[in-house]
């Protein structure tokens, strides 16, 4: 009695949609990171002044908060993501030039870049393999982020190096939490728009890179 029993592994439409969001997010994230690297290189080549960082970050954040949400569901949203990430990358140029001019600067930049990649890929792999739901972190991370921003405002005027180091360390912890939270939201269907998912993950990577640069720059000093 030969019966052909064919087993068809069917996935639910929602699981397929989730995988599509994840794949599109990682694809767009890779392209925006490459684009940021390109604009950072252009900024370094043009020898832009330090104020470029401040102007670019403010411009990028204003576009991300007020313009991007209006266009997130259209193809224009992709162009706006490139505009934001290009601006943020361009702002990084003067900072990278400053670190590159330090005696151990090249090493600091390479370690910060590699370290950021390892942290992002490690945390993403952790969420994707365990498939844990980290939605409980939302409130904790947002309040922690607001407190760090308040501390950063105070330290602009206090200029205490130890506090600066502490703020950078806490920012890395909070941004790591946001990677867990955002990736978990994508795989559990909480985030269905890959444009918004990309900008969220890009900003966590950007902040981790900046904070690692500061920590390694301070700790790698000769004194």
């Amino acid at each position: 009695m030969n019966r052909n029993i064919s087993t068809v592994a069917q996935r639910s439409p929602s699981a397929l949609a989730t995988n599509k969001v994840l794949r599109n997010t990682y694809m767009l994230l890779s392209l925006t990171l490459l684009f940021s690297g390109l604009t950072a290189g252009i900024s370094m080549f043009m020898n832009m002044p330090p104020m470029t960082y401040l102007i670019s970050v403010i411009g990028g954040m204003v576009i991300a908060m007020f313009v991007l949400p209006r266009f997130a569901n259209s193809t224009a949203g992709i162009g706006i993501v490139f505009l934001i990430t290009g601006l943020l990358g361009f702002g990084l140029g003067p900072m990278l030039s400053m670190y590159a001019a330090l005696p151990n600067g090249g090493n600091v930049i390479t370690l910060a870049f590699g370290g950021t990649g390892v942290i992002f890929m490690g945390l993403s792999a952790y969420v994707l393999t365990t498939r844990k739901d980290f939605s409980f972190l939302g409130g904790f991370l947002m309040v922690g982020f607001l407190l760090v921003l308040l501390a950063a405002v105070a330290n602009i005027f206090l200029a205490i190096p130890a506090m600066s180091l502490m703020i950078s360390a806490v920012v890395i912890m909070i941004m790591s939490g946001f990677i867990l939270y955002d990736t978990s939201r994508i795989i559990h269907g909480g985030e269905t728009n890959y444009v918004m998912a990309t900008i969220g993950l890009y900003l966590t990577i950007f902040n981790i890179f900046i904070s690692l640069l500061q920590i390694l720059g301070i700790m790698g000093g000769d004194d």
Binding site: L111, G122, L123, A169, M173, S176, I215
Partner: peptide
């Protein structure tokens, strides 16, 4: 657990 791993990783980078 992953946050503790990151702290150790940053200590290694330093």
């Amino acid at each position: 657990i992953p946050i503790a791993a990151i702290i150790l990783f940053i200590a290694l980078l330093i």
